[in-house]
């Protein structure tokens, strides 16, 4: 039986791995089969991670996290956790490739998944004009008209990034102000290629086989309008990934994993949680990493006192 299994491979999971590995606990980190590296794998330049004054590419940063975790003896597994049994002294973790692993402690760092608009045909047109990854797909919209939906930092970042390619970027937001940080919002508002459509939400997607436009509804007066577009990038936030542990670990009213105060302790002894899956407020690479460190230290403490 192992000492520590870490589920998740974003900044929280890898930081927990670096700390527990340096403590000699030989952690197993289950990284997912295709989403290893987490949300930062879909970003370009990360400008606010301390220690990188020139900025760093998201995928490079995650490559560094992994290398540092492996250097101290972390075993990284490219597989998906499909089932966990967290009660009792022996925690059991089953994966998509049919393996079963046991450990004294489990650190949950499953992060958050992008939110969908919830309009008809969203899945069907996903990859055919509807996208959640500006860095992957912006390239294909050179000199085209596209839109970004959202009002937070990630919507601002995507809109700004997409102006490198598109001739016109509409920024569709359901309120009359952005919740993005001032520096990010100002950058978008001062970009001549970006036009904000306030108080509006997307209600329909148009196009057969590929997106040709959307229907909008004004959230103030209810009026409807159409907008011709070739690309629609959705950046309306994330939901914590808790399906794996629902019914075992206590959740907050907002569906995050509940932890005890500033610690990473869940309601189950030996089970710890960190990163975006516990964080309704901050959700930065650096806060996730710090939270992964807390989980590692809590797990170490649990192992020495049990």
């Amino acid at each position: 039986m192992r000492d520590v299994i870490i589920i998740g491979s974003g900044p929280a999971g890898y930081t927990a791995a670096i700390y527990t590995a340096r403590a000699g606990l030989k952690p197993l980190l289950i990284a997912s089969s295709v989403e290893a590296g987490g949300e930062l794998m879909k970003t370009t330049e990360v400008e606010n991670f301390p220690g990188f004054p020139e900025g760093v590419m998201g995928p490079s940063l995650m490559g560094n996290f992994q290398a540092q975790a492996e250097k101290f003896g972390t075993e990284v597994l490219l597989d998906d956790v499909v089932e966990v049994n967290l009660e009792g002294d022996v925690k059991v973790v089953k994966t998509g490739l049919g393996q079963t692993y046991e450990a004294k402690t489990v650190i949950l760092a499953t992060g958050a998944a992008y939110r969908e608009l919830g309009v008809p045909r969203e899945k069907e047109l996903s990859g055919y004009g509807v996208s959640w990854c500006a860095t992957c797909d912006g390239f294909f919209f050179r000199e085209r008209t596209i839109a970004v939906v959202g009002g937070g930092d990630s919507a601002m970042e995507e809109a700004n990034f997409l102006t490198r390619f598109a001739s016109k970027v509409y920024l569709i937001h359901r309120r009359d102000s952005f919740k993005a940080s001032k520096i990010m919002a100002d950058r978008a508002l001062s970009n001549p290629k970006i036009e904000v459509i306030w108080n509006s939400e997307v209600t329909e997607l148009h196009g057969e086989g590929k997106l040709t436009g959307v229907s909008l509804r004004n959230t103030v007066d209810g009026s409807a309008s159409n907008l011709d577009l070739e690309g629609l990038f959705i950046a309306i936030g994330n939901d914590p990934r808790v399906d794996l542990v629902r019914g075992q670990v206590d959740l907050t009213s907002e569906n995050f994993i509940e932890v005890d105060g500033r610690s990473s302790r869940t309601n189950i002894p030996g089970v710890f949680a960190c990163g975006d899956v516990i964080d309704p407020s901050y959700r930065q690479a650096i806060t996730a990493a710090a939270s992964g460190c807390v989980a590692a230290l809590d797990a170490e403490h649990y192992l020495t006192s049990h």
């Binding site: 295709v34 590296g37 794998m41 879909k42 970003t43 990854c133 860095t135 992957c136 390239f139």
Partner: peptide, 10 residues
């Protein structure tokens, strides 16, 4: 493409 994270993952 080089700059596509999910491409590297798959």
């Amino acid at each position: 493409a080089e700059w596509c994270g999910p491409c590297r993952q798959v």
